[in-house]
Amino acid sequence: MSLQSKHMLGLQHVSDEDIITILNTANAMKDIIKRKIKKVPTLRGRTVVTLFYENSTRTKTSFDLAGKYLSADTVGLSASSSSVQKGESLIDTARTVEAMGADVVVLRHPAAGSSKMLAENINCSVINAGDGVHEHPTQALLDMFTISEHKKDFKGLKVTIVGDILHSRVARSNIWGLTKLGAEVSVVGPATMLPPKMEKMGVKVYTNMEEALAGADVVNVLRIQLERQKQGLFPSLREYSRLYGINQERLALLKDDAIILHPGPMNRGVEIVSRVADSSQAVIEEQVTNGVAVRMALLYLLTGGEKVEDVN
């Protein structure tokens, strides 16, 4: 039942069977989070190190708790407090962490491909917690897990991802994962925020919000980074909101039982209005719980030993 790789670097090269295994395992893990005693002894004696070169309290905490609920020892290393400040290379930092006994390294890094580089240079398992704008597989898996709790099947499911697709690792990982399981994925955003030739990834590309939302089962609303305005990628938050904000009128374009996802943190009133964010169709808080469950599932599935299982 282990995965095909001991690393989780991205969903592009993960099989659909592996994705399903992770989602099924996450289902069992979620029960543990809901118990009074939120701990199982599974990863007793294992060490998980979170190595974060970008600030993300949310993702880091989620991995920390996932490890702790499975009884792993978790240690966090952030770029600002470590030898990274002294100019040590990523590989050297990771090798140091490994030499101290880490079994799993969770890496968040601003450079695309950094987790792959790490996996090629150290022996322990590497989980990509976001590398540049390349991939953020655990976010996509938690999005998919959340969708699976509300929708029967991914086959034919219409999922629309809205926003700054160009700079979104979440969008890329979601596209790989969702299309593998047969969902019909569309992306929509201003032309300046759509990467070239994205349709070759198997998605429909829109600049018109109304067309992209029509009949959707799931809408995944991306956070708009306010600094993109200064970079000249869009003229103003006001215009962005007017063209691509999710509001109640646009909600009406979706299927009646459509759900709204957002990876957080939200800019209320910009990409999503509060009345939508707080509506019964929004599953944003569930995503947070599911993030811990999915990360527990991954930590469990990636930390196997060497022996083949005995009979009886």
């Binding site: 599974t42 196997g304 030993g305 083949v308």
Partner: peptide, 16 residues
């Protein structure tokens, strides 16, 4: 999740 041989198995058994 309570098995005592998880650290030695190469294939993590499926969790239900």
């Amino acid at each position: 999740l309570y098995r005592d041989d998880l650290t030695t198995l190469s294939q993590q058994p499926q969790v239900h």
